[in-house]
């Protein structure tokens, strides 16, 4: 069973991400958080295998949440899913050691790639 935590301040976006990923992943369970702070708490309590995190969020920005997550677990597997695709933002986030950076909106093609990525690394 793969545990996936989706951190996004939009419930709509949470649902879209879930339904897209559901198509390409078996045996996976989801949990959700509405902001960076809540995401951090869920991460500590639930120990998900993957975190999919938005950047622009209230309370704690995605960037800052990832920093904290990486402090407590340097091997944490983080996927960024964001509409802020400025290249310096991307560079900043990639320097934090994330698996990949996906531009919103999520579509079928991107979801399939994510499914492959998660499927592979969870088997490996």
């Amino acid at each position: 069973m793969t545990k996936l935590l989706i951190v996004d301040d939009s419930k709509f976006s949470q649902k879209i991400t879930r339904s897209f990923l559901d198509r390409y992943l078996d045996d996976v369970t989801f949990d959700f958080a509405d902001d960076g702070q809540a995401g951090l708490e869920k991460f500590d309590a639930w120990h998900p295998d993957y975190i999919i995190v938005d950047l622009l969020m209230p309370k704690l920005r995605g960037q800052d949440m990832i920093k904290q997550v990486k402090l407590s677990d340097p091997d944490a597997r983080v996927i960024v899913l964001s509409a802020d695709v400025q290249h310096h933002v991307r560079e900043e986030v990639e320097s934090l050691g994330v698996l990949t950076f996906v531009n919103k909106p999520l579509d079928d093609k991107k979801a399939r790639e994510l499914g492959t990525l998660i499927g592979k690394s969870s088997r490996g």
């Binding site: 939009s10 709509f12 622009l56 509409a83 802020d84 695709v85 400025q86 290249h87 310096h88 919103k104």
Partner: peptide, 19 residues
């Protein structure tokens, strides 16, 4: 919530282009 998310993506892209 839906409209916020849709426009959010648009604004992100606009900022990217302008940047």
């Amino acid at each position: 919530d839906i409209m916020t998310e849709l426009f959010n993506i648009g604004v992100g892209q606009a900022a990217n282009t302008l940047s």
